[in-house]
Design a protein around this nucleic acid. Sequence first.
RNA 1: GGGGGCGUAGCUCAGUCGGUAGAGCAGUGGCCUUUUAAGCCAUUGGUCGGGGGUUCGAGUCCCUCCGCCCCUACCA
Length: 546
Amino acid sequence: MNSQNRAATPAQDIHHLERQRRENRGKIPAGLDPYGSRLDGIIPLAEAVDRYDEQADQAYQASAAARKAAEKSGDGGVPEVVDERPRVRVAGRVVLHRDNGKLVWINLRDESRDSFQIAVSKRDCDEAGFAVAKATDLGDVIAAEGPLMRTRAGEITVWADSVLPMAKCLVPPPEKRAGLSDVELRYRQRYVDLWATPESMRVFRLRSELVSAARRHLDGLGFMEVETPMLQAQAGGAAARPFITHMNALDIDLYLRIAPELYLKRLLVGGMRRVYEINRNFRNEGLDKQHNPEFTMLELYEAFGDMESVMRITEDLVRALARVAAEHLGAPGARLPFGDLEIDYEKPFDRVRYGDLFERALGFPMSDIDKVRAKAEALGLRVRDEKGEPLDDVFIVNEVFEEAAEPALDPARPTFITHYPAKLSPLTRPNRDDPTLADRADLFIGGMEIAPHYTELNNPDVQAEKFREQLSGIDDEESTFRTFDEDFVRALKVGMPPAGGMGLGIDRLVMLLTDQRSIRDVVLFPLMRPEGLNAGEPGDGRESSE
RNA sequence: GGGGGCGUAGCUCAGUCGGUAGAGCAGUGGCCUUUUAAGCCAUUGGUCGGGGGUUCGAGUCCCUCCGCCCCUACCA
């Protein structure tokens, strides 16, 4: 079964450190597969620590000592050794290896614990297991079994009587104390980062728990989780550039979705009352600390609700998730560090009207358009469109708003910005009392836009008109992917109940709740330029420059 | 797109004014049955990201390409 040992890599191409590891693999006793096989009953390392029984350990030590003393005195009547220490079977990556000759100390790591010690003694372990322990390299995956004891130095340890190889690590691992700090390697080889950098594993474990908790929370509110198309003939629901692909069977171009919105609303038409989807969106735009081309979005819609009702859902949800994260830090409540900030999710979130925030930050109202334009010029902002035409007032206002007012928010206070100008949100339902305002509220936390909320438009005629307005004045490139969604208007004609909707950027929320500054540190496999395609072609530099 | 920075052993990093490439960890050989960043002795390991240039001489200076990071811009 050990055919894998003889994988045909030419010897001269193998790095000497890998060759050495291949040789060490060969030292594993015949009859044991270096790549192991199914092993039941393995418990997490953290649980092994919990199972330690102080009394049983002391009773064992005492009875072993008594037996030894009796043997020594030779008076007969040697007592039985009482060993009721709990036995455990554990497995993990070898992160430390101290070979004392006839006693080998190995520290394992798994998802649950950074380090857990096993001792492999020539006297007490079976022969093959001892040989495995001697041949073990840092980074190997092994399993061990034995009683739980405490060493003289006080560390809870498995005193192994059996050790089994589970997987050889042929690639030399990162430095044992510094771990992997090269960010490029961490992203490209996440499989190394996860085991070699405990902090990285913690972030992704917490991310998983947060997403689970979000589902539980929403399910508890009577929401139904659904899945809608990622391959779409029209990329709607947002104003981003989509990725394009081709379907051979129908010979049509398809787009990777930029948002699930228009499909989720169709479900409200069909009669679903509360729906949500947690899934990937794809946007063919720039990469930075807050943007990955594929990112995870939670969108939810509540029939017979509105912006206010979904704002309440979001606030409760975010607070519940913050509590999960705080529990991980061993802190009660929901106060979490984010860089230099401490963000308090427990107190009611702040609310500020768009216009009020503008006036508070700038010192004059947004209606004072002369001052707004002067400020825009002073800030060096864009005041004309691509064709050189002056931008509409409301867009200038928004440029100034984003440049000068948004940063005036307290980043440590989760804040909803409400009452956006209607012209900024062309697809949103205008406010019933003041049609110049849109029923839209954006949640900001830590200086990041986390979640927009809307009272959804459900009048098919208004929707059709909005689509038409949006399509007028787009350029050729945009027109290839921005189209009028006839079917969506037809759905609205069937009748969609009034509704509130929300979209929450899961990656950004996870950044906040795990205190990570880059989206790449909360995405397991962030997009990277592929390795080795054009790297270092001889002479390519000179040729392309001349 | 614009600007700045970085790239040296498997990993983490030094490398002075341009003068024969260094450390720790890891690895290898040896000793060691309570170590825990184990220890002690010995020791292997380099396309200094690729290419070109200047120079008697380049890890170091210049050009260029590749990759990554940061800032900025774009992004409902």
